[in-house]
Each structure stands twice: as C-alpha cells, then as structure tokens.
C-alpha cells in the first residue's frame, strides 16, 4: 500500500524483521516484563504447590473444577482485548500514555504489534469457548456450598458474587460480541432480527464495561482465594446469614 508521506527508516524501525519468530518487544531489556513473568511464575507455583482443600464445601475458584484448566482460563485473560490494552501500555510501553510527551515509545524501539507471535491473540475466541464450558462448574460450586451447609453463608455469597462477575466478564467479551451480532450487517434480513439486535445491544452495553469487569473479576478471584485460604487456616471469618 502507498502511504504517501510517511518517512521511515526500515532498519531502525525494526518491524520488518521477517525472520524473527520472537517479536522485538520480547527481546528488549524490559524490567517490567521480567517482573511480570516472575510474579506470574511465583503465583502459579504457589497455586500448584499449596492447593486449597475444599473446606466446609467451599471450593476455591482457582481449582474449579481442577487446577488443570488454569492455563485455559489464563490464556483467555492473556488474549482478552481489555488486558491486551493494559499490558501493551504498561508492560511494553507501546505507548505508555496517549499524551505525546510521555509515551516512552519511539521509532528506535522495535515494534511488531499483533503481527508476529502475538498473532496468537487472534485465537481468543477458542479460549472463550473453553471458558464458557468451565463456567457451569462455578455454579455447581455455589450449589455445593449451599447444600453442604444447608445455609446461606458469607462464604457462599462471596462465591456467588465471584461467579456473577466471572459470568459478566465472560459474556461481555469482544469475541462473544462478534458472535452475538458484531459480524452481522443486516439484522432485519435474518430470522428474529429484531430480538437479535436487542440482544446485541444488551451485550454491547456489557461490553462497554468489559475493562472494568475484567479487573473486578480478577481481583475478586484473588480475594476469594485469599479468603478461603484464611478460612482453611482456621480463622473464624465465616458466618451464617440465613438457614435453609
């Protein structure tokens, strides 16, 4: 394509490195990236090495239904459009800020965007499908918690809130939006077009809060995990709200 007046220095810009499988972004000395990888590594080690046993019927969401699905859920989040924005900005600094004086981005830094290894992000929809398959287990866990105690407890409520947030996060996903109507140009030409369009509008509303939901549900996940660990260590922080 002809890009008119864009003057560039191809060698320096470094995005035309056709032989590199590993994008330039990952080769750069980037303490933020190292720190991020280390933190993720430690977290994974802790989760795998120190599992939370089901206590009083409450199952830690990291282990629902099994810790083996964690990579799938992790990949779903890693390829999520909301997190992509965050780590491209705050880890790779491409760019750090929109304000043009504080971007920490430049022509000298290599940039491949989502064209090389990061092209895998385009498989986001498959991780979504997988995650949707796992979702029923979360609801099952709420049921188990209620059935085990025969009461609505604080812990059960926390689990329920977590599950609702995860559900909202999943179904506000951009890939899901593509399915609900993003790929449709003419609703009125389709069967039940008006209802489909209304569904798309509702989903679009959720989607506009996808970023907030992504972070809310992630923080909730961690909170629930810490809460249940505290509970299983013997702290008395659970109480019954209503007997069933």
């Amino acid at each position: 394509m002809d890009f008119g007046s864009r003057e560039r220095n191809e060698v320096e810009a470094g995005y035309v490195s056709r032989n590199d499988t590993i994008p330039r972004e990952l080769k750069e000395p980037n303490p933020r990236l190292w720190l991020f990888i280390i933190l993720i590594g430690i977290a994974l080690y802790l989760i795998v090495e120190f599992p939370v046993k089901p206590i009083d019927g409450y199952i830690d969401p990291f282990y629902a239904p099994t810790v083996l699905v964690l990579p799938l859920v992790g990949l779903f989040r890693i390829t999520c459009y909301a997190y992509r924005k965050d780590y491209h900005r705050h880890i790779f600094k491409h760019p750090l800020e929109c304000s043009i004086n504080n971007r920490h981005d430049s022509q000298k830094r290599g940039y491949t965007g989502e064209t090389r290894l990061f092209r895998l992000e385009n498989l986001h929809r498959y991780f979504l499908y997988g995650s949707i398959l796992i979702l029923p287990f979360f609801y099952l866990d709420i049921y188990k918690a209620l059935a085990f105690n025969m009461a609505i407890t604080l812990a059960a409520v926390i689990l329920a809130v977590n599950t609702i947030l995860v559900t909202l996060y999943l179904f506000s996903c951009h890939a899901f939006r593509h399915l609900t109507g993003g790929g449709t140009d003419c609703y009125s030409c389709k069967f039940a077009g008006r209802s489909r369009r209304s569904f798309f509008d509702v989903q679009s509303y959720l989607n506009s809060h996808h970023e907030q939901l992504a972070w809310a549900s992630l923080l909730m996940f961690i909170f629930v995990d810490l809460y249940l660990r505290a509970l299983s260590s013997g702290l008395n922080i659970n109480f019954i709200i209503l007997h069933l």
Partner: peptide, 14 residues
C-alpha cells in the same frame, strides 16, 4: 496523529 503505530513506528498500518 495519536496512533503510536503511525507516529512512532511509521508502520504500514492504515
């Protein structure tokens, strides 16, 4: 103007 792909990297992005 604000797009870093164009501004900083002058890449072949429309």
């Amino acid at each position: 103007d604000v797009c870093h792909v164009i501004r900083e990297h002058k890449a072949d992005y429309v």
